[in-house]
Simulated assay, not measured.
Amino acid sequence: MKPSMAIKPLVFAVAAVMAVAIQADERRGNDHHHNNGHHQQQPKDPHKDPRFFATASATLNDQQDNYDNFVLNQGTENTADVSDSLNDAEGNAGLNVAAGDMNQQDNEAAIASSDAEWIFGGSYASTDANQSQHDNIAVNISTTNSATLDGSANDSSGNVGVNVAAGDFNQQKNMMAAASSGGRYAIASGPVNQESTGNVVSNLGVATFEKETLRARFEAEGTYKGWGSGVVIDDKERGHRGKDKVDKDPLYFKEAGTFELSGTATYQVLVPTGFTNVVTNDATVSGSLNNASGNVGANVAAGVGNQQANSLSIAACQSCL
């Protein structure tokens, strides 16, 4: 027989017993009034009995905000690594590992349970998550972000949450809401709201160059012309009255020719060849979560502005309406 079918007769039986008890109280009150002249005792209101309308509740409200932040990474290495962890874990286990800037992580569980004594009561479990990031700026120059989940959470059972993030402005969340009731209702909810607006990410690498020697050969030709005048002086001659006389003969000339020039010019320039240490984002899950049972959530992120969530809601009751 199903538990829900088995509990229903119990509900009716307890209700009948309560009704008989109420009638007995009324009769005793009436007899007491007639015999002793006292005021009549007011009958009990079953709707005010805590056993009928008692409620077990568990509520978690979480808000994660990232805004108006600026991050500059130059040659930065952000590494988040989970290795050989949470193996054979049981129950409620949460693990958060982050490397970088402005990362937000959370593991939460809300559990509410009520037994069969609360016949007309119930249980309520709720998780509510809001993740918001806006107007953030991240500039990565030759940056490496690496997030790794390796050999972890194997053979685990129960509620297990793992968050691994490397980089900037990452938001991760694992949530579970469980409600179990022996009464008339069980409610479990786990809404998630994620918003990401107005964010700027710039990923830049360092440019590489090589020196290149350039050679140039040149040749040039030209002509020139010229002219001039002068005198030619002969030997001295005996002049009048025994004085020496210089003989100057006039001279006129013209000159013309050509010239040639040649040579080699060398100089060096920087030639771009590519980029080195470019921005690298690696997220890896290896050899993990094997043979796990129950509610298992894993979030692994590398980079900027990632939003991740695992949400589970469970509701069970034995005498649901």
Rank of each mutant, 00 (worst) to 15 (best):
A220V: 10
D168V: 06
V201C: 05
T148N: 07
S181P: 04
T148Q: 09
T213G: 11
R184L: 01
N159T: 14
K225S: 15
T223K: 09
W227Q: 12
S152L: 12
A207Y: 14
M175S: 15
W227A: 12
G161V: 02
Y185A: 03
E212W: 06
E221G: 13
L149A: 10
N163E: 07
T148E: 00
G222R: 01
V231M: 15
A153T: 05
R241Y: 09
A138C: 09
Y224F: 13
S202R: 07
F209M: 10
A216R: 12
K211P: 01
I141C: 06
G228K: 06
S146E: 08
D150Q: 14
G239F: 08
N193R: 14
D235W: 05
M176D: 12
A165E: 06
G161M: 04
G182W: 03
G205W: 06
E212R: 09
N199I: 05
V160P: 02
N199M: 02
S142Y: 05
S196A: 15
G226W: 06
L214Y: 11
D234G: 15
G205Q: 03
G167K: 01
E212D: 06
D135C: 10
R238L: 13
L149D: 08
N199R: 01
S202K: 10
P191Q: 03
G222S: 13
A147C: 04
T213F: 12
T148V: 11
L149Q: 07
I137A: 04
A166G: 10
N163Y: 03
E237H: 14
G151I: 02
E195H: 09
E195I: 14
A216T: 11
A138W: 00
L204C: 08
V200S: 02
G228Y: 06
S156M: 04
Q172W: 00
R238T: 13
V232H: 13
G198M: 05
A188G: 00
G190K: 00
G198L: 08
